[in-house]
Design a protein around this nucleic acid. Structure first.
Lengths: 342, 342
DNA sequence: CTGTTAGCGCCTTCAG
DNA sequence: CTGAAGGCGCTAACAG
């Protein structure tokens, strides 16, 4: 390991094969302007010498690294893991690699990572799930490479490309399901309302749906941190209230499953005594009893579409739509009573 | 977006600040041999001109990219997502970035990705969870950068560094728990026996434990693909047998949870009628009722330790141990009867 | 402490 | 179809 092999370069191959560096470069890059016979000879000596092209040198000379930067809140969240899979698959398909960075949604860390990625001369940048502040806008617009947002959007710079879903409407639809089931007291397990990406919009959708029926009551709102334990706890509180909620909308699946277990731990039946609906449709939703009703978000597709959009920018392909709201779907399973409304 | 800004280089800064490129390079790289006053002046003009160092050029000149390659089976598996988080955190701490590649355990894809990563001049390589074949050994030993294995090992080249756990012993311990509970018919939901990394070793541990008590019976072995549905199905089969198993060891948590649900769907109590124990201790294990007993594998630590080991190689630090078997722990919860044996 | 000078390995005109 | 030559932006001795 770590042997300091004397690196063999394009120059060595050229000498060995009796051609010029330019010719070797051409065959390495699949340039058609090479006589088949010459190409064959070069290919052979490349093989024989075990030559491996240096992508860094190529990057410096060509100003392309075939690498894209991906800034993500936390890869251990299955939501983002799924999204990243979509990104990587498409990236791979177009022969790009991805540099993955976890930001934990810390603004300073995000900005610093973006800066680093730009220094590394990525050909494009994908910024996932985080807030877009003034500083972000500044660095994005100063970048010489395309930047696409995924699972988030910029509410100020309306021209910034993005791929996500309509959070407000989806949350509204989910709440609507519970209303149509006849519930009058519907609790929310939300995310921080200071979170402009998920927390607030989903709260807003919930609120709008209830207000249209005069059912909104602040007392049934609890705030969690998107993780299972917080859902468990919030639901335990809500369900311990005398004359409390008979249904709960949790703004993501982890918290929703926490809510189901809270109900069960309190001896309540789901959905008999309490209906629960989640959001995202991560694998966990199908790995719990009762199966969780949820808003199915096309996580993989968000990543894939965002990456595809980015490749279009990087290759100067024509772009018809650079701001896409992907469709979501209500996945009604066993934690609510109503089945397949639509 | 994508504006072709005329790139400003170290040379521009030097001219503007009235110093040489070397000096600018020094301040950019924090070299102490610069008069404070000069440093200040340079820093100012860097700031003013909005100069951004080009890491590709630096990489070519210094032969270091501060980037490591990570080849992983599938980031959407929470096991690997967790592991990757450990890797990235440590990488970040040492100022490295990671290029992440999913291999889906396809040998050809693995080899091709490794090749690409080496072309990109990564300073080191982390190979996770996959089999190490002759071709792998060949490319690894030909690489001029260190390669560390994580969550896998090379059974042939006994010198290749790795970080993982003792799979056989852990599986044996898990099985032992069920034996000590008094079960005589213990089913296995395993992975493919052709999988030398997880499938076979965990099967082996199961088998050894049972054989020591004369309890091994081929008929109670079922093979899944590590995913929830396969566990559900395998368990449904096992539990439908007249005089079938009264306990099940699933070689990973997803399948184990599938087994719990299979039992419940058949009207059986867990652990009253059937005990279930899993393996890995992914978050899901704590998000199911009853809480899953499992073998707790330090996923994050495997990643972190492997990355730390890699940094040592990359920085030529002294290395005391380059093959580490991390400790695992039996996490006995509610899907088995015995509590905290130790 | 600071400047000069070679490259790092490859791509890309531009001639021929 | 092929070769020669000039960078890409930066680091790393080596002088001074």
């Amino acid at each position: 390991m770590g042997k300091k092999k004397e690196t063999i370069t394009i120059y060595d191959v050229a000498r060995e094969a009796g051609v010029s560096m330019a010719t070797v470069s051409r065959v390495v890059n699949g340039n058609p302007n090479v006589k088949p016979q010459t190409r064959k000879k070069v290919l052979e000596t490349i093989q024989r010498m075990g030559y491996r092209p240096n992508a860094v040198a190529r990057g410096l000379a060509s100003k392309k690294t075939t690498t894209v930067g991906v800034v993500i809140p936390d890869i251990s969240y299955s939501f983002f893991a799924e999204l990243t899979r979509g990104i990587e698959d498409i990236a791979n398909m177009y022969h790009y690699n991805i540099i993955l960075c976890n930001s934990d949604l810390q603004k300073m860390k995000e900005l610093q990572l973006i800066e680093t990625l730009l220094e590394k001369q990525v050909d494009g940048l994908l910024y996932l799930g985080g807030e877009v502040t003034e500083e972000h806008r500044h660095i994005f617009s100063g970048a010489s490479v395309p930047v696409v947002l995924a699972a988030t959007r910029d509410e100020v710079d309306r021209s910034r490309p993005f791929v996500t879903i309509d959070q407000v409407q989806a949350a509204k639809d989910a709440t609507q399901v519970l209303i149509e089931e006849g519930h009058r007291r519907i609790g929310l397990i939300g995310g921080p309302l200071t979170d402009p990406i998920l927390g607030y919009p989903r709260y807003q959708g919930y609120k709008e749906a209830l207000e249209e029926h005069g059912l909104f009551e602040e007392q049934w709102v609890r705030i969690g941190n998107y993780r299972y334990p917080s859902g468990l706890q919030a639901a335990t509180e809500l369900l311990s209230i005398e004359e409390g909620p008979t249904a709960i909308f949790a703004v993501n699946d982890e918290m929703a499953v926490g809510a189901i277990h809270a109900a069960q731990d309190l001896g309540k039946q789901v959905p008999g005594d309490v209906s629960v609906i989640g959001f995202d449709n991560i694998p966990l939703a199908a790995q719990v009893r009762p199966l969780l009703s949820t808003v199915s978000v096309p996580m993989y597709d968000i990543g894939a579409v965002a990456m595809r959009l980015l490749t279009k920018y990087m290759n100067d392909e024509p772009i018809e739509e650079n701001q896409v709201l992907l469709p979501y779907r209500l996945e009604l399973a066993d934690s609510t009573i109503a089945k397949e409304v639509k």
